[in-house]
């Protein structure tokens, strides 16, 4: 047995309990989603037939399309906002020495600690004052703002690893500070920005309490709220639809993860602790 094969056996043996527990909810989702409606309440693991039509009926019964679109819209836009304001923020923290630096660091840590649920009453009042109730943009704004702490912190520790020499060399060649920043610095920062953006997107994709409070009409619901509304206080719960919807909502993100996971690891490794 080669050394690598031996490692493989040990590695999978040690990981197997975690793998089983991790995959279990996915199995539950998949199997329940594929059960014919009359069998949903029977806890068998093998449905009598695969009811693929559940996915079709789920799509319209759960208003899935608009909710998916809202989630993507909110995720992308809030990430864009957070990243756009965090890049200069992080750059300043990293490349300049100025009086308010300590204060800003503390400010970021404090905002990181406040959970939206703790602030939900006050947040709602802001949205009401701005006339943004039932507007997905209110959610975009809140997610964007709450993500700033994390994105700045990740970006600035990553920026610290980009050598100053390169920018300084560009100045010597006569480039202005701004153009050195755009032409030399930012291209180097792209991997860090990507990783940070993914985190920010996931936060928005997952968020529950703010969306629940701010969004009123089904047309503006994001996916977690839409799926929650299928099980919350209705007189009957169509579990096969709930599971089908959860599964479909999960797949795109799972694919992004599978594709980007190595960059995530690398980004966190450099970024997390500096």
């Amino acid at each position: 047995m080669s050394a690598k094969l031996k490692r493989t056996v040990i590695a999978w043996a040690v990981l197997s309990p975690l793998v089983v527990v991790t995959l279990f909810p996915f199995a539950v989702m998949l199997i329940t989603a594929l059960k014919p409606p009359t069998e949903v309440l029977t806890p068998n693991w093998v449905p009598s037939r695969l009811a693929w039509e559940n996915f079709v009926s789920m799509w319209s019964a759960t208003n899935f399309g608009p909710a998916l679109w809202n989630s993507i819209y909110v995720g992308v836009l809030s990430t864009a906002i957070a990243i756009a304001v965090s890049i200069p923020f992080a750059y300043a923290l990293n490349r300049f020495d100025f009086g308010a630096k300590g204060f800003l660091r503390q400010f970021l840590l404090v905002t990181q600690m406040l959970s939206p649920i703790v602030l939900v009453i006050g947040l709602f009042r802001i949205a009401a004052a701005l006339g943004l109730i039932d507007n997905v943009n209110s959610v975009v704004l809140v997610y964007g703002a709450f993500n700033i702490a994390f994105t700045v912190w990740m970006l600035q520790s990553y920026f610290a690893t980009i050598p100053r020499d390169l920018e300084e060399a560009a100045w010597l060649e006569g480039a202005s500070h701004a153009s050195a920043l755009v032409r030399v610095f930012l291209p180097l920062a792209v991997p860090a920005i990507t990783v940070t953006a993914i985190f920010s997107f996931i936060q928005a994709w997952n968020e529950f309490v703010i969306a629940l409070t701010m969004l009123r009409r089904q047309e503006s619901y994001t996916l977690p709220i839409q799926i929650f509304s299928l099980v919350a206080g209705r007189y009957t719960v169509e579990w096969h639809h709930v599971m089908a919807a959860s599964l479909v909502a999960t797949i795109p993100v799972a694919i992004i993860f599978a594709w980007l996971q190595r960059y995530l690891v690398r980004g966190l490794g450099v970024g997390a602790v500096k």
Binding site: V85, P88, F96, F107, T111, I121, G122
Partner: peptide
């Protein structure tokens, strides 16, 4: 003043969304 200008948009947004509700509480 450059660093302050760079920091300002992010700081204002975060402060507005986080500190104002905190004050309300």
């Amino acid at each position: 003043l450059a660093p302050y200008a760079l920091v300002m948009p992010g700081f204002l947004l975060a402060a507005f969304i986080v500190l104002w509700p905190l004050y309300q509480l």
